[in-house]
Design a protein around this nucleic acid. Structure first.
Lengths: 376, 376
DNA sequence: TTGTAAGCGTTATCAT
DNA sequence: ATGATAACGCTTACAA
């Protein structure tokens, strides 16, 4: 794993971070900035259209009881003035910011992006916007995240693991009545909107796959213990072993944290056992890919000498070679669903409509690819 | 590349998307919702502390001319009431939403996450929040993105490629005086704040590396043509070839779009040439990893039979095996810098302070790893 | 159908 | 050092 790093710069260019000051050219136009130049307000539109501001409001919001001709005149005036309603003023009166927060903690990029894309997909063509609020080490400072969320002026928040399972955080949000949707496998603790996949059964499915292939000396790389999924998946593995009248070998269960680097060390440690494991089951794809690298760096092949299986069906599981056997976690759909139900809740509050069901379950999917094979 | 997909669900659980309605239990508390329950306001705090609202405002904002004891009392009252200022009201009066937008177009997850992390790193401990606004196919509908941005109530926006180079979009933003920071290699078009890396020289560096190893039949997989970087990197390749009194072989230059799938097909096409290329130079890491898969699926090895080089130093370049030779693009730093300069511009507008320099350059870095070697 | 006036929760202006 | 009062830009009563 040696890496050579060479830093180059073309001589004819400025030094690092050199800043060429171009102020004074036409390029500066935008600097006038929104803060200085007064954007036109509803009053300007009213003046130009020759009506009252209330009529402008009605006309622009397509409210009833407005003369068709008046409405047209108002809309023309608004267009002529490049009028855009002031969102802050609207939020102030509506007691709504139309802002949803998404909180997550440094998991793999593909997880974050899927999460985000799922949430954004639901938000498309809605008034809501998405504010991203990553937060490190929630387990040790839940109240800090709480006050961050409370001060962010959100209408609601999506909590991904592991923040979703922090009692203290949830209590803060409850106390301040900030609605939230949790993406969590923790079936026991029923608080707020919950969207989940059955992690236990998913874990059981992937372990069963290895057992069916004939593996018994299976090395297991655990995920971050602060994520409920880690224990749930392990529980699933145990159920699978039990189905085969066997159980995980203690020496072959090592801790990890869902990252590639730690996954690599963990896998290397597993491979140092003798006899060595015939398969490695990692609790996510990043660590599984690291395990594949460790196997090869040990002069062995995948799946010839050692089978490797992951979890998540993240992008890397498809782009690695050989492609990885894994379990698909429908992160995208779960995020979509969480947002959907959160918005339904907010709307229900407004219009006295019925609140949506609090729980949604999503199916996992075992995906068998080329990284697993029967043991020699 | 065969894939078996098996869908499982444990029999004892509800059907897909089953929703267990738990409304009515204690879990419903949060449903009271922010919209209904009145959060405490500055007036409540003033009442409890026995002072005027103005004093509360001063005390809480750490403004001068407040008795130390009064300040303490006010802060205690605020804490006792779980008081959090209403951001909408603050925004209304400050004519600031404290919202920055980040626009990007479906590039690889690692790029998005790096971009976002860089921006968020700068935003930490600032009042600003980040709204993510991905947008597909900007090239064909710049005005739609423009109106989306304009209606989002942003104080400023970060434009990643390829939106950063859409004249029409920039003109709309200029017209409405919405400040923006562009992350773009387009040195020619000087509009607004620009943060960039020298793509031409970076391209030259990686191509030079292959040429120095002795490769001449180099297959090139281009990036998405709507990104200015694609042409810039190619220009760099040409300069490098010229340095070696050579030039790219037309038949060995194929189009791509920065995605794995298209990268795979493109690489497969390159390998069908005879004599086949001794190296493949992809314009990003995702396509380079795809090329490695294509090489292996053709029964060849990397770098034994074919060397492969990428671009970006994205996470996948480190987690693939063998690790990929690439060029580091400081996406994180560029995003940080873009936000930094954007905020400085906004603050300058407010306080009549001097506007920041409009341009910032960032260094690339050639990273030689195990995927490249001399030709046989 | 349209307009007037009263707020929404802050911060800024001027007093005191 | 502190406070009454007026903005900020909009929507919602309530009149007309």
């Amino acid at each position: 794993m040696t890496t050579f790093t060479v830093s180059h710069r073309h001589k004819s260019r400025e030094a690092l971070f050199t800043c060429t000051d171009k102020v004074g050219t036409g390029a500066t136009t935008h600097l006038a900035g929104a803060a200085i130049s007064k954007r036109s307000t509803i009053i300007d539109v009213a003046g130009l259209a020759g009506v009252s501001i209330k009529t402008v409001s009605r006309a622009l919001n397509d409210a009833p009881h407005v003369n068709a001709d008046t409405r047209r005149r108002v809309k023309e005036a608004a267009a002529a003035l490049d009028y855009h309603p002031n969102i802050a003023a609207q939020s102030l009166i509506a007691r709504r910011s139309y802002l949803l927060g998404l909180t997550y903690e440094r998991p793999s990029p593909s997880y974050v992006v899927e999460l985000q894309n799922g949430a954004l997909a639901r938000l498309e063509n809605s008034r809501y916007r998405l504010v991203v609020l990553p937060f490190r080490d929630v387990a040790n400072r839940p109240e800090e995240l709480g006050s961050l969320l409370l001060r962010a002026g959100l209408d609601g928040v999506i909590l991904a693991p592991p923040a979703c399972d922090q009692h203290e955080l949830l209590s803060m949000l409850d106390r301040q009545k900030l609605p939230y949707a949790r993406i969590t496998p923790h079936h026991e603790m029923d608080r707020g909107i919950v969207t989940a996949m059955d992690e236990v059964e998913a874990g059981r499915a992937i372990a069963t796959h290895l057992l069916e292939l004939g593996h018994r000396r299976i090395g297991i790389v655990m995920g971050d213990p602060s994520h409920a999924a880690s224990a749930a998946r392990m529980e699933g593995y145990r159920l699978a072993f039990a189905d085969f009248d066997a159980e995980p070998i203690d020496d072959l269960v090592v801790s990890g944290d869902f990252t590639y680097d730690v996954g690599y060390s963990a896998a290397a440690e597993l491979l140092s056992n003798s006899p060595r494991p015939t398969a490695i089951l990692a609790q996510n794809d990043d660590m599984a890919v690291a395990a594949m690298a460790a196997v090869r760096d040990a002069g062995l092949s995948v799946p010839g000498d050692v089978s490797v299986a992951g979890f998540d069906n993240s992008e890397v599981s498809r782009t690695t070679w050989p492609q990885l056997t894994t379990v698909r976690q429908p992160v995208n759909e779960m995020a979509w669903d969480a947002v959907d139900r959160l918005i339904a809740t907010l709307d229900a509050n407004d219009s006295q409509r019925e609140a949506p069901p609090l729980r949604g379950d999503h199916p996992y999917e075992l995906i068998v690819r080329a990284s697993t094979a029967p043991p020699l």
